[in-house]
Nucleic acid binder design. Structure first.
Lengths: 164, 164
DNA sequence: ATAGATGCAAATATTTTGCCGCCAG
DNA sequence: CTGGCGGCAAAATATTTGCATCTAT
């Protein structure tokens, strides 16, 4: 990761710094609140970043964006928050077929389960939903006698625009 | 992730793993040879380890086993060989839903594509093949206009024996 | 003979942990 | 008030790279 010197500016930010994150907490924030989990300023920032991200972010990406809103936030907090959300099943962890290295990417776990379809050339990632996928999961659950709680399907190849 | 003490699926290998690599190279060895790739002693050992492994191994596991046959082999060679095989599409890389930490596991890319079904409690991993899965891939290829070259599906849950 | 592989050590990258002061509830 | 949380630094893991030497072909 880029060793951002970060200049160590006065991190006496404290709550005095007014940021309009508070209002209108998203799904994740509501979920945590409903479970009686403490909502710190840092967590609110991170939840907001996750919920508004257009593309999949890894820990470093989350940190960079979160810092734009709350400069004092640290990498450790990012990891701890990711861990919290994973434990509560509120986010999914992907690696996108290692297309962009060996880090992990995160996305808010929406109501619909989807497949990630990535182009190995241009790197574009598309989300794909399918009844067939649901059926496949049912088949697995039945045939393997397993109660499924997580699923992850990633597909790589060459998209129409990147065909040889 | 909080360190789960859980199963340490280390040794469950039969004892006298007698070594005799050279004769009758396996599929991987043949594939590399056919491509005119140099077959060093270290590579032969690693290929053999991969082809005969009963469970999924990560880089460290491959190294440990390879050393039993060729003590001088190094971690670097393991990584470089993994990389070689990946580039040639001869092995698949999994992470088994991070069930056992953030490392990667490898398996010789057989003729049949399968799904990995893992129990989050006992850690057992089962391989599952399905016509439905093939159909799903066809649907993705068609609907997304993509020529698929890699797929990975991992499913986690609680197996019959580990049901609450 | 020689392109390409390995070993060694050190560099990178990524994630986790111990400790302590601080803040949300 | 107080127990959980965040910051800091350092540790633990995981993987890659530079370079000299060796080897499969």
């Amino acid at each position: 990761m880029t060793s951002s010197p970060s200049a160590n500016p006065e991190h006496r930010v404290s709550t005095g710094e007014r940021i309009n994150i508070q209002r209108r907490g998203g799904r994740l924030q509501k979920q945590l609140a409903a479970r009686g989990i403490r909502l710190t300023h840092q967590r609110r920032v991170l939840l907001q970043v996750m919920e508004t991200a257009r593309r999949h972010l890894d820990a470093g990406g989350l940190l960079r964006r979160a810092r734009r809103m709350h400069p004092g936030i640290t990498r450790v907090t990012v990891y701890r928050t990711i861990d919290l959300l994973k434990r509560h099943g509120l986010i999914d962890e992907l690696d996108l077929l290692h297309l962009r290295g060996d880090r992990h990417f995160y996305e808010s776990h929406g109501p619909r389960d989807h497949i990630h379809v990535a182009c190995l050339r241009c790197g574009r990632v598309r989300e794909f939903e399918s009844r067939l996928y649901e059926k496949l999961k049912e088949q697995i659950a039945k045939d393997c006698g397993i109660r499924i709680t997580i699923t992850r399907t990633e597909v790589g190849g060459y998209c129409a625009a990147c065909q040889d």
